[in-house]
């Protein structure tokens, strides 16, 4: 069976890298003595994968991990064993089991919900910018793409993020939005702030952006959001 879990990356450990996070999970699986499967071959590796890579510094309520087990373990029991084996900054929220042939969790994510909190004061300027963003048909942005030849890539921010909700209080701007994930990729939440700065002349301090992924979800044929896992909390 495949065990699927919704887990967190809490504030306290937000700065560990994706690789470090994945390795921490693997060690926790060993500590929990879950009967995890390994690949064949000369250098076997644990059959464990994460649904979507999270940027360093981003907090998450919605990390999804999938692992293949050699023998079935009730998801609730597996979750309980893992809870004891995980560091305080990773919590298990939901657990679910699917059969080995179910499509990889990685391929089914259709979008993510983010919250970005960032210092800001000029309420008028911000509400104008957010209004303009929501009304715009497109917003071209040149993002960094280190793996490509050019090193940059042209994207349309509005394709990924159709709508923004914004609140300003206590000197902080709180942005909430859904961001589309396609088989060809997605965009980083921080690039939304970069794009707003560039397009609307805002001077939001990107380096202080406190970013949190609130949810990750599937999108059905009608565009409705569906939870990644069937299991209840």
């Amino acid at each position: 069976m495949k065990l699927r879990l919704q887990i967190t990356k809490d504030r306290s450990i937000r700065f560990i890298s994706h690789l470090e996070y994945a390795r921490t999970l693997m060690r926790a699986v060993l500590r929990a003595k879950l009967p995890v499967a390994y690949s064949e071959g000369f250098n076997p590796h644990m059959k464990l994968s994460l649904a979507s890579a999270l940027g360093v510094g981003v907090v998450s309520q919605a990390e999804f991990v999938e692992m293949e087990l050699k023998e079935p373990v009730p998801p609730a029991e597996a979750a309980q064993r893992l809870r004891k084996a995980l560091p305080a900054g990773i919590k298990v929220l939901t657990a679910d089991a699917v059969d080995d042939h179910a499509p990889a969790l990685m391929s089914v994510a259709g979008g993510a919900t983010y919250q970005v909190v960032i210092p800001a004061t000029d309420a008028d300027q911000i509400s104008q910018a957010v209004g303009a963003f929501n009304a715009a048909a497109s917003l071209p942005f040149t993002k960094k793409a280190p793996k490509t030849k050019a090193g940059v890539k042209e994207i349309d921010v509005k394709f990924y993020i159709p709508h923004l909700e914004a609140e300003l209080f206590g000197g902080k701007l709180v942005l909430r939005f859904d961001c589309r994930i396609t088989p060809a990729g997605s965009m980083k939440a921080v690039d939304l702030v970069n794009a707003l700065n560039k397009q609307y002349g805002l001077a939001l301090p990107v380096e202080l952006a406190d970013i949190e992924r609130l949810d990750l979800y599937r999108v059905d044929d009608l565009g409705r959001h569906e939870p990644m896992l069937a299991g209840a909390r």
Partner: peptide, 12 residues
């Protein structure tokens, strides 16, 4: 390597 500074490791 920001993880040098944030702690929270298993067993701490």
């Amino acid at each position: 390597k920001p993880a040098r500074y944030t702690g929270g490791e298993f067993g701490s």
